[in-house]
Amino acid sequence: MKWFTLVAVLAESSQAALRFGCSVLSVQRLDPLVQPGAIPSTHVHQIIGGNAFNATIRTDDVSKGASCTTCVFSEDFSNYWTALLYFKARNGTYKRVPQYVNADLTSGIQAGMTVYYTQQDFSSNGNKHITAFQPGFRMTVGSPTVTSSTKAASQKGLRYTCLQTIMTRGAETAAFPTAPCPAGIMAIHHFPACWDGKNLDSPNHQDHMYDTSTGGFQVASACPSTHPVRMPQLAYETMWNTTAFNDKSIWPTDGSQPFVWSYNDKLGYGTHGDYVFGWKDDALQRAMNSSCMFTGCGTDQGGPLKVQAAAAMNACKVPDTVTEDIGTNAWLSVLPGQKAD
């Protein structure tokens, strides 16, 4: 789907839709939701957002502990993270797959992800009030323990696109693409958007939310009575530049696809994402109450949200708590934190 088509669909709503880029904040083995306090966590993550991120991220208001953010909207101190992608060579060694910037984002952003907060619930409460996430809110989607194609197929918001170009989109799959992708692989994470209205988190970081999406940026079903509060549809897109590894002569001899997540998932079924809300004050609610679209939500274009230049985004970092080779330059014999095959 081309972006002008997506914009046209979203424009049918009177509600706001955010689409913005965030550069990389850190790449290391930390996971303050699933393994709080663990230094290191079991596998490598790529993290974007505010610089309050740590192994023991605060549970009240993350924005109070941050002084900068890697996101274009400077009031967004939230943290967003996923696993890191690797290429596995025929000799069993691993190399980190680089990221690149999505289409039509602020010029100069360094890798990172594209973040969406949309309100495409047109068949139910799309024209009603959308409740922004609250300070202390957190959630995850997916699980690295998923190894079944049946389970993966049921997780409609977790998909991959084999990119033909940066501007076009093809069919989505629940598993890694099986053929070389001309413009890389896009990993997609759509989070549930129905909240129980009570709990900012739950023991598994998922039960306080309910997913009624039908996949992609399509109309979601109405929220159930157990989770009646409609929140923004949060989504991530990560552009993995796999093109340096497209020569099939370096792929496995059996012809299988060569990419693995940092927790050693070669199927792709266990893809997952983490989110900690950290927008300053009522900034996200102001945006959700407006009718702005994508970059038009910035104050530089008459929108409600403050923006910053790419240089400020790229300058925001957190120190490495875990110091180790993650395969950026040299090849690794074992994935960080994982056992040898």
Rank of each mutant, 00 (worst) to 15 (best):
L158Q: 14
Y160S: 12
Y160V: 11
Y160D: 05
T161A: 06
T161D: 15
T161Q: 12
C162D: 09
L163Q: 14
Q164M: 11
T165H: 10
T165R: 09
T165D: 14
R169M: 05
G170E: 12
G170Y: 01
G170N: 09
A171E: 14
E172N: 00
A174Q: 07
A174M: 04
A174P: 02
A174W: 03
A175E: 04
F176D: 06
F176H: 04
F176N: 07
P177G: 02
P177T: 06
T178A: 08
T178W: 00
T178K: 13
T178I: 01
A179C: 00
A179Q: 14
A179L: 08
P180H: 11
P180Q: 07
P180W: 01
P180T: 11
C181T: 05
P182Q: 02
P182E: 07
P182V: 00
P182R: 03
A183P: 08
M186I: 09
M186C: 11
M186W: 05
I188D: 12
H189I: 09
H190N: 07
H190K: 06
H190L: 03
H190E: 08
F191M: 08
A193G: 09
A193Y: 05
C194D: 12
C194R: 08
C194P: 05
D196R: 02
D196W: 03
D196M: 02
G197L: 05
G197V: 06
N199K: 06
N199D: 13
L200S: 10
L200K: 14
L200Y: 00
L200I: 12
L200E: 05
D201A: 12
D201C: 00
D201T: 15
S202Y: 10
P203T: 09
N204L: 01
N204T: 03
Q206V: 01
Q206L: 10
D207M: 12
H208S: 13
H208N: 15
Y210D: 13
Y210L: 14
D211T: 02
D211F: 04
D211A: 10
S213W: 00
S213A: 11
